[in-house]
Amino acid sequence: MTTSEPASLIGELTDPASVDDVEWAARLLAATPTHEGRDPELLRQWARRADEFGSRLAPVRSTAHVIERDDGLKRMLLARYTSRPPTVELYTDTLALAEELVDARGWRDWYPPGSVRAAALAHEAVHAHLHHGPAKGALRQALGHTVLRLGRLRVAGHVAGAEEVAAHAYARTVCGLGRSPLLLSAALRAALTRPGREN
């Protein structure tokens, strides 16, 4: 931390909850390749639309096989979905650290006990849903990113990272979380990359 960094940024690093959910989503998009140099306001707009799309999704049933692993902290992963075969991997060490962090930060009202695991399953269920069904096209239309216009024909383009934002918004809604799981991801990342911490 340098003295030239603005006070608001110092506040964000010590209290990530001071950043709203849409801003976290916009930062996820900003960190996703292909968005280098994009207007931050456009990223915020896409983040808001993807968040709304995920929040409005009807409940999704996952048929994926669930397995547990304990090497998430090393790999900086909380959960992973693979389509062949449909499997959700839950990283129990990261989930345990998330629960600890929720208590330490005083965020229990936002993330009730066991809700991080439920959010992980809900998040990965959306990936399975988007992978197999027509919902992906609906997300693209909802984002409204036009990449080609030929007269009245309009081609909506893919926005890398929007699916991830939608999956987090869906998890927040169906699990009744007070804040987006993205806040928890940011706090976990900050805790794991803190100078002096060893995994």
Partner: peptide, 21 residues
């Protein structure tokens, strides 16, 4: 053969907004 893969990665968000090229 391998299908698709999506991870809830802790690296996906940065507390500090990325300094842009």
């Amino acid at each position: 053969r391998r299908g698709t893969e999506h991870a809830w990665s802790l690296k996906s968000v940065e507390a500090k907004p990325r300094s842009r090229r």
